[in-house]
Amino acid sequence: MSNAQSVFNIIGPVMIGPSSSHTAGAARLGKIARAFLGSTPRSARMELHGSFWHTHEGHGTDLAIVAGLLGFDTDDERIKRSFSIAAEQGLHFSFEPADLGDVHPNSVRFHLRSDADSIELTGASVGGGNILVTEVMGFETKLTGRSNALFTIHEDRPGVIASVAQVVARHRINIAFMRVSRQDEGTLACMILESDSALPPQAVQEIAALPPIRAARVIEKV
């Protein structure tokens, strides 16, 4: 057969209903947002754009996003109880409508806070449970969450990317995809590095210890 599609894309995925884009995709967005923060948030404010706001309660988009923030997968039966589990775990959350501009109709902007950190990011559920993280901390990105990634915020100066790549090479990890973006020349930049296999914790520690690196975080596939 010449097609590259798996039969399990046709019979599957196993998921909590009712909609692959409004429920499964929403849970994956919540889970990847949690990964950028590095832990379960203490507080989470979500701006929902377009169709995401209009049907979020009926499709359980809100429950699914909170479930993702708690670290649940798309087939986790606890998705429908995510609000009460969030309350038990001390996660305060809110949803509000927003016009995020010229973005996909199923877009959400996260404002997350933990005791140690805070993060802002925007992502979209683009169909069939697929997602795209389009912006993190004001930096433009394109992350699908289908492979393991490393996210850094670093000083925008020569040699930083090479020194990160050296650490990765030393651990014999193959870089599949890399994207660097910055706000202004010579200020801060962000890097997303996707790899074939997950980066070992030691590699991440070594990268985080490099002087120009302000933050380094593993974003596991969701």
Partner: peptide
């Protein structure tokens, strides 16, 4: 429709 666990076949 009640947010139970299902298999998309081919869709939810």
């Amino acid at each position: 429709a009640a947010m139970g666990k299902i298999v998309a076949a081919p869709t939810a």
